[in-house]
């Protein structure tokens, strides 16, 4: 089954096209936005999806793949419904970021970088999220959760799990 943008993604992609010059260089700029739309739809970027993006941007598959592998926000493997990204950089590290991710791994029974069997959670360690004043910071998919504590984390995990299962 080959990948293609659904209607929503295609609509957004059309909006992105208007932001850039209508020439090969301008279309190459569409690679990152297109990859983001694809990842939102599919959850991750497979080589097949990269080829699709190459097609709609008029670029070579490897040009797209170079971008996929360079930037840290593109998932090259499927991830859980909730991608828990724990910052452990300096300020978050000083204020308990590492304890938070360890706790998450223990609670969910997985190692860093892995996904729970029910596909609901993936735990990763990320670099500075730019919200250090409210350290420690956790990003779940697109949303920031700041001033995290172990208690808040437990509550959040429960809430997210209930949402998937309920």
């Amino acid at each position: 089954m080959s990948f293609a943008f659904n209607e929503v993604a295609m609509k957004e992609f059309d909006i992105w096209k208007k932001k850039f010059p209508d020439d090969p260089e301008g279309r190459r700029s569409l690679i990152i936005p297109a990859l983001r739309l694809a990842q939102r739809q599919a959850g991750w970027i497979s080589p097949e999806i990269a080829e699709y993006v190459a097609g709609i941007t008029g670029t070579a598959p490897l040009q797209v793949w170079s971008v996929v592998t360079f930037y840290s926000m593109f998932n090259r493997e499927p991830v859980g419904k909730n991608l828990l990204q724990f910052c452990t950089s300096i300020s978050c590290g000083l204020l308990g970021g590492e304890e938070l991710i360890s706790h998450a791994c223990r609670k969910l029974g997985i190692e860093e970088g892995k996904t729970t069997d029910d596909g609901i959670f993936t735990v990763t360690e990320v670099e500075c999220l730019g919200a250090c004043g409210n350290a420690p910071v956790l990003q779940v998919n697109d949303r920031y959760h700041e001033n995290m504590t172990i208690e808040k984390l437990d509550a959040l995990i429960n809430e997210l799990r209930n949402k998937e299962q309920g």
Binding site: I31, T59, M73
Partner: peptide, 19 residues
């Protein structure tokens, strides 16, 4: 899409160009 080095202005330009 997640790269600290894109804060460097010429790296930013390359990133904007889809590279």
């Amino acid at each position: 899409a997640g790269a600290y080095i894109c804060g460097e202005e010429s790296a930013l330009l390359n990133s904007l160009e889809g590279k």
